[in-house]
Nucleic acid binder design. Sequence first.
RNA 1: UGGGGCAUGGUGCAACGGCAGCACACCAGACUUUGGAUCUGUGGAUCUUGGUUCGAAUCCAGGUGCCCCAGCCA
Length: 563
Amino acid sequence: MTESPTFGATNFIREAIAEDLAAGRFNRVQTRFPPEPNGYLHIGHAKAIVIDFGTAEAFNGICSLRYDDTNPVKEDVEFVDAIKEDIHWLGFDWQDREFYASDYFDRLYAFALQMIRMGKAYVDDLSADEIREYRGTLTEPGKESPYRSRGVAENLDLFERMRAGEFPDGARTLRAKIDMTSGNINLRDPVMYRILHARHHRTGDRWCIYPMYDFAHGQSDSIEGVTHSLCDLAYEDHRPLYDWFLDQLGIFHPRQIEFARLNLTYTILSKRYLKQMVDSGLVSGWDDPRMPTLRGMRRRGYTARAVRNFIETVGVAKKENLIEISLLEHLVREDLNKVALRVLGVLDPVKVILDNYPEGKVEVLEAINNPEDPSAGTRDLPFARELYIDQDDFREEPPPKYFRLAPGREVRLRYGYIIQCQSFVKDERTGRVTEIHCTYDPETRGGYAPDGRKVQGTIHWVSAAHAIDAEVRLYDRLFTLEDPREVNEGKTFLDYLNPDSLKVLPNCKLEPGLRDAAPGGHYQFERKGFFAVDWESTPEHPIFNQTVPLRDSWAKIEGAKNK
RNA sequence: UGGGGCAUGGUGCAACGGCAGCACACCAGACUUUGGAUCUGUGGAUCUUGGUUCGAAUCCAGGUGCCCCAGCCA
């Protein structure tokens, strides 16, 4: 066993673990990722996953998957399957260690009995409202329940009858007997068990009492032999209780360490809010490419490698943070730049006619698949008299520093010829240019000018006769507020939805080879951005999702001028 | 006089008593058959006050600010 991390950067958690090892407190490292199967995983969970699995790996230890399934009314197998799939997609594996808190219900029940016998737990008849009243407030101590002093025998009898189903939901609870005056509210006789006549996705109708998180988590960790239980800052206040149960029970005592959760600009990472958007139809589902869920990001075209790099780069600390989404986008580009095949695609087509190019003639031009990776090879591109280019690449009146096509101007067609604009046709009603007439220079095949003349601009194109039709979906941030948690008085996060988060372009023209692009595939549309083939894409109706646009310095120049 | 936690460029993370560094963002330039990529460069930070020390982001004391906790959710 090594005493210092061998994988990834160090952080305060790894330092603490290294100290534990050095001090002999533990002689191995075991962690766990403990999701509740009540929703889909998002990028915030990815942080927890990378920390849990990555920390174990750094110390040559192991990490398990354990579902925290102690609340049957919120949980479902749909989610347990989806969660496993998403963790695997991220690239982590728990081998045969797929655990469930519900597997420990018998042992947890026995622990509860033990607590009662020790006089450390009692059955309370107070209602939920009364318990809240007795709990006191943040600044005032609580008071003890009149049922707190029940004898062991009576508690045993009542608890057994709770388990047997004699009482309705909410009629009684099992509570730990700790300290109703504690400054830490979690220690004011926390509820250990509640009555819930609900069917559990794994244990069915076997139980009608279920343990609370605080009475299940630490003991589950202990049973599994977890050494380091890494969790959210939210559980910091629960650590004394985590420790207390373990100490009372006298069982193996893991160490809980808390870290700050991830927050992302222009993004909401709350299962409840995400669910609200799904349920109200604001997005198409949990896998909508605009969603910060792992499935949404995957569908959008983000790679697991980029997501992992992002989590590594962001680091681990106890400070509340708000990470700029641009960092994630940078890492997505960095990864895709190395692997995505380059293609030519016209998103907003306008026809270009090469008046001096022979009618019916078709040439085959060679194009490089990925300049960052010579082994990706080349492909053939058909070239003909009629082409499409993007509306954006033509200006009737070109502004300064605009290097693309304009009346009288020359531009290079990528891998093709240098062409010059002679005239254009405009629909006076809409103001839209419908046709551009150009001449091509036959001496410049491949884009090279033998006379050495400089041509500043290079634009992408497709052959009109050969191009395939496709639908392209452009995405932008879901919210207009940098931190959607910080809304103004009387507003909710829904008041800050970005109305332009999705733009569907139904009439795009792409190079012919893209007809058989496999769903999930990554491409770079040159000069435009990275795109992924949507899961619902077919050869008859290809659909591409914009993963992230390329950095566009011209857009920056123009944007700055328009201010 | 509730309890717990956190303060380093715009953002995030380092520096563990010895020249405050890295990434992203930003700005400027070079290069360019993707206005992509790549390369170079500029600017910008230790919450505050006092103390210890030859020397403090780091140690000590006080102050200030921000976050979390009053589910029979996790």
